[in-house]
Design a protein around this nucleic acid. Structure first.
Lengths: 200, 200
DNA sequence: GCCGCCACTGAACATCTGTACAGTGATGAC
DNA sequence: GTCATCACTGTACAGATGTTCAGTGGCGGC
């Protein structure tokens, strides 16, 4: 009776559906049954493949971290234009993997193990970047670099975590639509480079 | 049999317990029974006073927004040192109302009605501030002020929303402990005023 | 052909969820 | 005194939740 090709269903469909719903409604607020329904599958199949909700979250985590990490790992850029390059790279990741990024924005708040890994990846990356730039003398020397690294992180991830709020209250259309994404990235580069206030 | 003074129990205890648990674990992930237990009260009393979970969330929202709004409303400062003054004011609010702030950090993510009000308050405040400074010529003129306002917001609220993550992975001790709070505020002023990178 | 494997299902389970309801006992008005 | 009020409780209920289990049907190996 099942004329649908086997391949498209099953694990991939479940992980995809879960990623979408977790991102939209939160992990705690999304039931296995909703995920199964969204994936067009019985709840029991979710348990069969992933052992339970905890296992499903781990699988979604792994998928999202994998997509994000792979796209983000290509860090051949160096030099003073690093900031701009990094920003464009981040934007590219969000353009090509919007679901994974949206999910991670939620996961960071709810504290899934995979999201902690992404956090560490970002923080370490930020620190290397800073060390790199500091060697080249491109940085101010009096800043608090622990908090500066966190600020980088917030400027990138907070919009994803606050996504629903922004789209409801401020933005025209989707956060990850080309226009908004471009303005967002440009504003980040701008702020990090020059601050917002006139000297003196 | 009940020798405890009546006053301390009841509504206040429930709202306080709910605010604490909602902030720590999220609203969706916290049950009425947990709130009632934390407050030392029967679950039915929560329903009696607030009509249900939705009503409880509304009450906690109102309490948090009230505390925060009252402490934040005193905005007599103007002039070029406004940024520093505002930052100190925000820090003072967080010092004096840590639970309300921690709760709002979560509520902003989960999208409660009250948190949206705080968001609008902050965004409007930010915009007035910017208009004020722009008139005085204290601002750069080429920035994207919609996104700049959002950046202000993120730098203040993201740490609260990511609080558990930060305390687990990066910070020594509590985010709102005096040392961390001071570094955080100082880093914000620093970034907004000068950026992180050397000119040229 | 047969057989084992495995994705997949429906029905059932215990538990937790929010909520309704009928009370109880202390307090204050009269 | 009596009575109404109200904070507060224990119990019960319907529905949702995560999970279990005994199946079923199609596929590849032999």
């Amino acid at each position: 009776m099942c004329s649908v090709t086997r391949t498209e269903r099953g694990q991939d469909a479940i992980v995809g559906a879960a990623m979408r719903l977790f991102a939209r409604d939160g992990i705690a607020a999304t039931s296995l049954r909703e995920v199964a329904k969204e994936a067009g599958v019985s709840p029991a199949l979710v348990v069969h493949h992933f052992g339970g909700k905890e296992g499903l979250v781990a699988a979604v985590d792994e998928a999202a971290v994998g997509e994000f990490g792979a796209a983000y790992a290509d860090d051949s850029a160096t030099g003073p234009e690093l900031l701009q390059r990094r920003a464009e790279q981040t934007a590219a990741v969000m353009r090509s993997h919007p679901e994974a990024c949206a999910y991670l924005g939620r996961a960071l708040i709810e504290g899934t193990p995979g999201s902690s890994a992404v956090f560490r990846l970002m923080i370490e990356g930020g620190r290397h970047e800073i060390d790199d730039l500091a060697e080249k003398g491109a940085l101010r020397e009096d800043a608090d670099w622990t908090w500066a690294t966190l600020q980088h992180f917030f400027l990138i991830w907070a919009p994803l975590s606050f996504r629903a709020l922004l789209e409801r209250e401020v933005l025209d259309g989707q956060l990850l639509a080309p226009d908004n994404l471009e303005r967002w990235v440009a504003a980040n580069v701008d702020l990090l480079r020059d601050g917002l206030y006139r000297d003196g």
